[in-house]
Design a binder for these strands. Structure first.
Length: 638
RNA sequence: GCCGGUAUAGCUCAGCUGGUAGAGCACCUGAUUUGUAAUCAGGGGGUCGCGGGUUCGAACCCUGCUGCCGGCACCA
């Protein structure tokens, strides 16, 4: 006798052990049809597996998206693998998990798959779904399993089993005459997968994610519970493409890149206006927070980089030059050595600390060619960098101040969902454990005192100190790592930076490395996508356009323009002999936030008609009122 | 860096199996003086990414390189 309790609180008694499918059928006919899996005491299981003890049971249907979609996607991966092996015998299967929005499967095959193959595979997948093959779970003996897969020529599967712990059960799922090693669970039959899936892309992927291993061929797909969801997802992808910063960068004339300078940005006036607005803002915030600002050389002798350790650890990412005098120089990949040089240019007293030194430093790093991506990953970029020199006693307070500043600044851009990652000592590190204890507790202490939650990244810190990373989530739910805060007692020592303490002894200061935007280039890329090009007025590179309806209004339009510019607004006038429809369309496409329409009426009355981007209505205001309103709105956050 | 794809006018793209290039938008000129998301007509513009090769002949086929795109790895 077993008792199964259901989510609604009811309990059903059964004489003998019962399968999930039988349980669903016992509850209702329609549930039996819709059932995809069951959870038994919270553990997700196949419908076909027998429940033989008292338990809390829940029947899973497509309505339980969080559970059902991963199941559907995982099944889609299996069906795809079967389709591939049907069509291309000799192809080895490796792994094929469900992922966000879809699934993939990695295959080992000599011949590359082509985009045409995807269509064929998809067609074969639909046949397998139509055949509605039952998925049957089997448990195999470990050695038999290894032998079976090895004999089949499935070396990767055999390797996977060998890597499993001795006591792990080896489960295999069959669908028709095809089977795959898999821990499951799965849908009861391939028909339950439905046809709301689509193969999306081909890619290379290293076996076990290790670049020392051979490269496999990965096929990605997306899969959903129904066609409506699939279509919504595909539409979402199209929308995301429309806000791609590379596309908007061209459409809004922000910047361009070209072949002669891979990974470097040619900023156009519009993009540079944005860049300057961000720097102006940050400069103001930093000055208010007690920072001073410096600027240091881009090209410095290799000896500098040997002292800092970059030459030994970062050489492959550095650009170097050789001049006629045979000295080797390097383009700075980081600003710290320059800043340390400024620190060392005077004898520092404990009274000078904390000393907060900012630099909008342009750095060059030779990034792998495959990593480059628009503004997001470049080889030449500008950091909103700063280094804070302080005593060990001040360290925790300084960390807290930095975190406060970061969180506050992100808020000004509408990033309220910020997650913090804390990375502690890595295996390969310098410095003694006592120092690491201090550095880590300073960082953690700062967060704890502020009551901020954070996740732990054990062993992911820099070799010289632990770090915090600030990951922000944009308007369409994507995560971006921007800010970072690192504590360091190593570099000051390498450069023999010291301060004179109260007792007249020389001591090395603690050095905090921090950046908020991270890279200005990247941050502009993120903002562009976050706002979909519709920047808030204070950031917009073109804030207002005065558009005339007839040439009768030209003089008035010039006066309006003059007034706007006098109030500090980035404004233009469009006096072209074009219809107002044409002008509105063009400036709206260019994402200009405010269009001031002036015609004969406005000219006579001394007013303007304000039309906001995306809005249908207009607001007629007296000129001085309009200018005051707009200049108020265009003020950057304090 | 690795795997796959791709490169034609400023932009988006067409150009069948090889016979020396075409559209829309943008730009220029003219007409139109227009009331809230494309007025009409005319015109100029391309070493078909770069270098080799095959061929009587290459945007098209082969090959090397470079950039870009999608992933993987990397992101101190």
């Amino acid at each position: 006798m077993i008792a199964l309790s259901l989510p609604d609180g009811s309990v059903r008694q059964f004489e003998a052990p019962i399968s999930g499918a039988e349980l669903a059928a016992d509850i209702s006919k329609s549930l039996a049809k819709k059932a995809l899996a069951v959870t038994v005491n919270g553990e997700l299981r196949d419908l076909t597996r027998t429940i033989d003890t008292d338990a809390e049971v829940r029947v899973i249907t497509a309505a339980d998206e969080d559970i059902a979609l991963p199941l559907i996607r995982h099944d889609a991966a299996h069906v795809m693998a079967q389709a591939v092996q049907d069509l291309y015998p000799g192809t080895q299967v490796t792994i094929g998990p469900a992922i966000d929005n879809g699934f993939y499967y990695d295959f080992a095959r000599e011949t590359p798959f082509t985009p045409d193959d995807l269509e064929k595979i998809e067609a074969r997948m639909k046949e397998i779904v139509a055949a509605d093959l039952p998925l049957i779970r089997e448990e195999w003996d470990r050695d038999t399993a290894i032998k079976t897969f090895r004999d089949m020529g499935e070396a990767y599967k055999a390797e996977i089993i060998e890597a499993l712990p001795e006591e792990a059960p080896i489960s295999v799922y069959r669908q028709g005459d095809w089977f795959d090693l898999c821990k499951g669970p799965h849908l009861p039959s391939t028909g339950k997968l439905g046809t709301a899936f689509k193969l999306t892309k081909l890619a290379g992927a290293y076996w076990r994610g290790d670049s020392n291993n051979e490269m496999l061929q990965r096929i990605y797909g997306t899969a959903w519970a129904n066609d409506k969801q699939l279509k919504a997802y595909l539409t979402m992808l199209e929308e995301a493409e429309k806000r791609d910063h590379r596309r908007l960068g061209r459409e809004m004339d922000l910047f361009h890149m070209q072949e002669e300078a891979p990974g470097a940005v040619f900023w156009h006036p519009n993009g540079w206006a944005l860049f300057r607005a961000l720097i102006d803002y940050m400069r103001r915030r930093q000055e208010a927070a007690g920072y001073v600002e410096i600027n240091t050389p881009s090209v410095m002798d290799r000896a500098m980089w040997e002292t800092s350790g970059h030459w030994q650890t970062f050489r492959e990412h550095m650009y170097t030059t050789q001049t006629e005098d045979e000295r080797i120089f390097a383009l700075k990949p980081m600003n710290c050595p320059g800043c340390l040089s400024v620190y060392r240019s005077a004898t520092r007293s404990y009274r000078d600390l904390p000393l907060r030194i900012a630099e909008f430093g342009k750095v060059n790093r030779y990034e792998p060619s495959g990593a480059l991506h628009g503004l997001m990953r470049v080889r030449e970029f500008t950091q909103d960098d700063a280094h804070i020199f302080c005593t060990p006693e001040q360290m925790e307070d300084e960390c807290r101040t930095v975190v406060e500043l970061i969180m506050d600044i992100y808020k000004d851009f509408g990033f309220t969902d910020v997650r913090i990652k804390f990375s502690d000592r890595p295996d390969k590190r310098i410095g003694d454990d006592a120092t690491w204890d201090k550095l880590e507790s300073a960082l953690k202490g700062a967060l704890d005192h502020m009551g901020l939650p954070y996740s732990h990244n054990p062993g992911e810190g820099a070799f010289y100190g632990p770090k915090l990373e600030f990951v922000l989530r944009d308007a369409i739910g994507r995560d971006w790592q921007c800010g970072t805060l690192q504590v360091d007692m190593n570099l000051p020592a390498r450069f023999q930076a010291v301060y004179v303490d109260k007792d007249d002894t020389r001591k090395p200061p603690v050095m905090l490395h921090r950046a908020l935007f991270g890279s200005l280039e990247r941050f502009i890329g993120i903002l562009t996508e976050h706002y979909a090009g519709r920047f808030p007025l204070w950031l917009a590179p073109r804030q207002a356009v005065v558009a005339t309806i007839t040439s009768d209004a030209d003089d008035h339009a010039r006066a309006v323009l003059k007034a706007l510019q006098a109030a500090g607004l980035k404004a233009e006038a469009d006096l072209r002999n074009e219809k107002i429809n044409y002008k509105i369309r063009e400036h709206s496409d260019a994402k200009v936030p405010v269009i001031l329409v002036v015609g004969k009426r406005e000219a006579e009355e001394g007013t303007v008609a304000i039309r906001r981007l995306g809005g249908k209505d207009q607001e007629i205001l007296a000129l001085d009122k309009a200018v005051a309103t707009l200049s108020d709105e265009a003020a950057p956050p304090a």
